[in-house]
C-alpha cells in the first residue's frame, strides 16, 4: 500500500472540492452546476476515505457510502428538476430562476 502523508490525501480532496466550487460559481448551465456538485460530493467522500485510511478504521468508508447514497438521491431529484425546468423555460440558464429576488 501507499505511504503518503495524510495531508497530501486531504489536499487532493481540497483541490477537487475547490474545482467543484469554481464549477458551481462559474457555470450558468444548470447541468454543469449539478456536475460541480457531484465533484464536491466526491471530494468530500475522498476526504472521508483518506481519514478512514489514516486511522485504519472502516468508518471513513461508511461515511463515503452515505455520501454516495446522498449523491444518488440528490442527482435523481436534481435531474428531475432540470427536466421540469427545461420543459417550462426552454433554457438551462440558472440565472433566469430568480423569482425569489428580494
Amino acid at each position: 500500500m501507499v505511504t503518503i502523508p495524510f495531508s497530501h490525501g486531504l489536499l487532493l480532496a481540497a483541490a477537487l472540492f475547490l474545482l467543484g466550487v469554481i464549477c458551481v460559481l462559474t457555470r450558468r448551465n444548470i447541468i454543469f452546476m449539478l456536475l460541480g456538485l457531484e465533484i464536491m460530493l466526491n471530494a468530500a467522500g475522498l476526504a472521508f476515505v483518506v481519514a478512514g485510511a489514516r486511522w485504519g478504521q472502516p468508518d471513513g468508508q461508511i461515511m463515503f457510502l452515505i455520501v454516495l447514497a446522498m449523491a444518488a438521491a440528490e442527482v435523481s431529484v436534481g435531474l428531475a428538476l432540470v427536466l421540469e425546468w427545461y420543459h417550462r423555460m426552454h433554457s438551462l440558464d440558472v440565472d433566469q430562476a430568480s423569482r425569489l429576488r428580494g
Binding site: V24, M33, D95, G102
Partner: peptide, 18 residues
Amino acid sequence: LAGAAQTGRVRTYAAGLT
C-alpha cells in the same frame, strides 16, 4: 441592504457560502 443580497440567483448564494 438585506434585500439587495436576495438576488434570486443561486450562484450568488453559493458565492456567499464560499
